[in-house]
């Protein structure tokens, strides 16, 4: 069967690719598109290391078929910083040592950014439940939650 042609937008840039009907978005991101910042930890939607947004909605790229990207807008970790300027969450993760091995970090950041876009003032509990789909085996989550809460506070202050 011939491959399927998909036209999409990835991190604001028009993008086209060919894929099998069975390919996941993660397969295509990491393969033909060369965007290896999204990680495969499970391929079953349980670890969140491949978190991306599809038209602004947080999804696991491993649970999304690549053809679903047609006509849609995908945002990945590679689109999070503006050139050299890190997103406040990225900067705060570095300052608070909210990463150790770093393999969950791209997904964690994409998920946290998605939270703050919907809720500028999350409680600790809201942060913890929002990030419950993103596994981290290194940090015990403490510094990650602190980084998200601190970033939210700073972004609220900056928006005043």
């Amino acid at each position: 069967m011939a491959k399927l042609h998909v036209s999409t937008t990835v991190n604001g840039e028009p993008s086209e690719f060919l894929c099998e009907a069975s390919d996941t978005m993660l397969d295509v991101l990491r393969g033909p598109l060369g965007l290896t910042g999204s990680k495969e930890g499970c391929a079953t939607g349980d670890c969140g290391a491949c978190s991306v947004t599809l038209d602004g909605r947080l999804v696991c790229a491993c649970l999304m078929l690549a053809v679903e990207a047609d006509g849609a807008e995908i945002e990945t970790i590679e689109g999070m910083s503006q050139g050299e300027k890190l997103h406040p969450l990225q900067q705060k993760f570095l300052e608070l040592a909210a990463l150790q091995c770093g393999i969950c970090t791209p997904g964690m950041l994409v998920a946290a950014k998605s939270l703050l876009e919907q809720n500028m003032n999350p409680t600790e509990t809201e942060v913890r439940y929002w990030l419950a789909g993103n596994l981290c085996r290194c940090t015990g989550y403490d510094k990650i939650v602190h980084a998200v809460l601190d970033t939210a506070a700073e972004m609220r202050e900056a928006a005043r």
Partner: peptide, 21 residues
């Protein structure tokens, strides 16, 4: 002092290359 790690910028931007990358 809790300085910024040398490999940090690569790890928060998705550039760090792990085994499968």
């Amino acid at each position: 002092k809790s300085t910024i790690r040398p490999d940090g910028a690569d790890k928060v931007t998705g550039r760090a290359a792990y085994a499968a990358d």
